[in-house]
Design a protein around this nucleic acid. Structure first.
Lengths: 336, 336
DNA sequence: ACAGGCGTTGTTATCGATAACATAAACGAG
DNA sequence: CTCGTTTATGTTATCGATAACAACGCCTGT
């Protein structure tokens, strides 16, 4: 009944050619006459033959995987980056091998080791901060490493990202220019989400640069900060510091949560309180009022990383690249 | 310089044992003395040896991949299902191999073929409708196939899902029970997203069962239907049929978009118009007003699929399983 | 003291595709 | 019409881990 699935040798036998010719018929650019290729593929389909990518990867000692780690799979920003990567690599036959770290350094280490065991052609990681062992694993793995969503001072390999701190500075400048001085920041606990921490640091530095106190910091728990946590944080802020002029949230999701708390309390946005988020999630373009935010060009990060990977693998790029994305400040109804 | 990375044979040589013993040291349950295992793992770490999962999979003729297809990676519902799968399979060392079909049948076929080339231990697909070739590929592949998010009449293998039509019927019943009779449905174009189409069919059948006309159907374009498209659809509905009592949207995202259009027009929800979505996305629990919706237990679908996969692979489940999830009707502020 | 059993380690053959090399056929320039 | 060149195909060896089997020592019970 359940006899073994057919191999290239079986296809070759039926088609009356050598296994090597079958192998070539399955390659895009190989030299096989069109007539023969057609016969071979026909036989393969008829026999129900399915190319064995594992065997091919094993023998050729290189895989068509590109490994990707993201903090959370359930995040529109990172999903967009993954989409950019997928689309940029699909044409060349590379397959994304995706894993999420749940914003946890130990988990990231485990995940990266697991992914490297597949001998991916390249690896894309989110963030520029990693455990020592992580850095060692990546550096020793002899494959292109791309750090994204950050601009690390000492990159492991290539970088496609932006400064989270600098992006938030733009928001602070915007509020200050509008005459708002008592500005608060709602974010996650320090030391977990490094991008969130960078945004917080950027906020504090920008406030200091304007000679303003950065003492309105609300920590909303471990990342990712949900809408609900944004609402809770806003409630705390309104209770503790009701004279706040403006609030910057670590993401549009928490900003929207914060907005709903204002709506429930009858606090006018932007009339009484101005609000901004981060990430240009769809919610910020649709909510009433729409949310001022920062567009980090998530998809473009993935797309640029994809072309960079191809450039490195094809030998067009031989030195570590540092591709800086410039986030865009989007001023919308919540801060006008 | 860049000499070849070490193999098990190298580790064995340095540790003074046979390669087979090294192999066993890397297996969880294998019979190796604790002392030797420690030595071997120490040598491996020292040499920078990294287990080659490709070679292991190749030789053992079975992989530790579980393939998963979702319509879109950027969707909280499917992301939750993937999370449930990931967590349920992680302990046993299985790795998720994820691909998205972009709600496209041809793309699904390509994707599934690509995934099967890796010889996954099992495959989980979203939805119960597939092209003929797809069904053939899956049926011939001699591996556990699990269809989710649907209850197909003729399943390929196992099923973990629910009836989208029946779930929507619950919403219609709820509105009718509250005396609302002019009920509209906002969804995607027919024939693309089968789950969305099922919800629409469920809506029409339920209306008919109540003796009500199902003539208030707004098509909002190809899936996935965004918040913005929900808003546009609501605008169309309010222009064309301003006397509508209630609106059911194909997802919470479009429902929220519809809500914002009402807010901008000053249409009171639920005062003038009642509203419901589908999926129990976070937005529906946070928005003002909160959105009535259906909780499909996305994460549980993944978790149940994971345990089912383990049961099948371990031989505890030998017949096709049909696990039916019962979605929960959540009545919130938007329809009270 | 010895048979039997269990836990630990070694030996051998091999999974399926392909890189590298070899060769045969077709072609084109002088 | 010949020789160099390209194109199409075949041959051989092999990637790195492990299943299956064999064997060795150690313990236990009688």
């Amino acid at each position: 009944m359940a006899r073994k699935p057919p191999t290239m040798a079986d296809v070759a036998r039926v088609a009356g050619v050598s296994p090597m010719t079958v192998s070539r018929a399955f390659k895009r650019d190989a030299s096989v006459s069109a007539a023969r290729r057609e016969v071979i593929l026909g036989v393969a389909e008829e026999l129900g033959y399915l190319f064995d990518a594992t065997a091919a990867n094993f023998k050729s000692q290189k895989s068509d995987f590109v490994a990707v780690t993201v903090p959370s799979i359930n995040n529109a920003n990172f999903a967009d980056t993954v989409r950019g990567l997928t689309e940029g690599l699909k044409a060349r036959g590379y397959q994304i091998l995706l894993g999420s770290t749940d914003y946890d350094t130990a988990e990231e280490e485990r995940l990266i080791e697991q992914l490297l065991r597949r001998r991916p052609a390249a690896i894309v990681v989110t963030g520029g901060k990693h455990s020592d062992r992580c850095r060692r694993l990546l550096a020793n793995a002899a494959l292109p490493v791309i750090e994204t969503w950050d601009l690390p001072e000492a990159p492991i390999g290539h970088v496609v990202g932006f400064s989270n701190a600098a992006a938030v500075r733009g928001l602070v400048d915007h509020f200050v220019a509008r005459g708002l001085r008592r500005i608060a920041f709602i974010g996650g606990d320090v030391g977990q989400d490094t991008r969130g921490a960078d945004r917080r640091l950027g906020f504090m530095a920008a406030m200091q640069a304007h000679g303003l106190p950065a003492d309105r910091l609300i920590a909303a728990g471990p990342p990712p900060i949900s809408m609900q946590e944004g609402a809770v944080a806003m409630a705390r802020l309104l209770d503790l510091m009701p004279d706040t002029h403006a609030v910057i949230c670590v993401s549009d999701l928490s900003a929207f949560g914060a907005l709903t708390e204002c709506q429930r309390r009858g606090v006018a946005v932007p009339g009484t309180l101005s609000l901004a988020g981060f990430g240009d999630y769809e919610i910020g373009a649709v909510s009433v009022p729409t949310l001022s935010t920062i567009n980090p060009f998530s998809r473009q990060i993935g797309a640029r990383a994809a072309t960079l990977i191809l450039d490195v693998l094809d030998g067009r790029q031989t030195t570590p690249a540092r591709i800086e994305i410039t986030p865009e400040l989007l001023i919308r109804e919540s801060s006008v």
